[in-house]
Amino acid sequence: MRKYFVLVSIVLATVVIAYITTYLRALGPIGLDTRYLAKLFLMLTYNPVYRELTAMSPEAVTSIVWDFRGVDTLYETVVFYMAIIAALTIYRGVSYSSIWGGYGLSLIVRVVTKLLIPINIAIAVSIAAHGHLTPGGGFQAGAVLAVVSVLLAVTYSASSFIKLGVSLSKAVALRSAGLLAIALVVFTPIVFSALTGVQTYIMQNYVKIDSSFSFPTHVWNQLISGTLIWLNLAEFLAVSFGFFIIFMLLSLREEVVREQIGEKDEH
């Protein structure tokens, strides 16, 4: 009886939601018509004719994320940066140097993982380097690369970070380098303006109505889409090593952390 009740409610709910979203047009008119905003994006993401409005990248999402609403993404990156600073603060005084031992998983998993890590890196870099051309980009590539830290911690145990020379301070340095690179791209137009007197905007990618400044869109006939490739690569660095820090900290055992911060009290 209860099973029957659950089944009927699922079917009813599906029918009602389908009815509301289609015939009642709760999501607005649907059909073959593309909405006006979508049409604008599709027309302007890569359009050498409307030079003042385009982002010069065939990848609509990257164009929106790093150009049309680039400052928003910049702040998102800063929020991510702050979250990792918070994590590092919670774990302050904890270092990775005194962890030894740990066996990891069986030989089979270890050997397969060993081969997967270079493949993982190749795919991550490909996603980052094509962020302005195909779906993907810096954040996605960073998430892919960060998987390496999880693989190491789970398959070879946390002590493998020491053996491989991966340290928290190196990860922090690389992540900061990524953020500095983003800042460099963001402020280059301002510096250019200060030096030459040309009108520019912060985070400017391509020419605007009242500004002739532009990052190079092509290098030897290869489309690099101005700021987008640099922002994607810098974000790749910042995000991947940001996640590296988080996963490295999370793979520490509680006893190790307690011992290092001098917490003796057994509650």
Partner: peptide
């Protein structure tokens, strides 16, 4: 060889850009 092959196959492109980065 492994990394280069994976990079090229995953990218699906043999432009000079990809060959250099790969």
């Amino acid at each position: 060889i492994l990394v280069f092959a994976v990079y090229i196959v995953f990218s699906g492109s043999i432009s000079s850009y990809d060959i250099i980065i790969g």
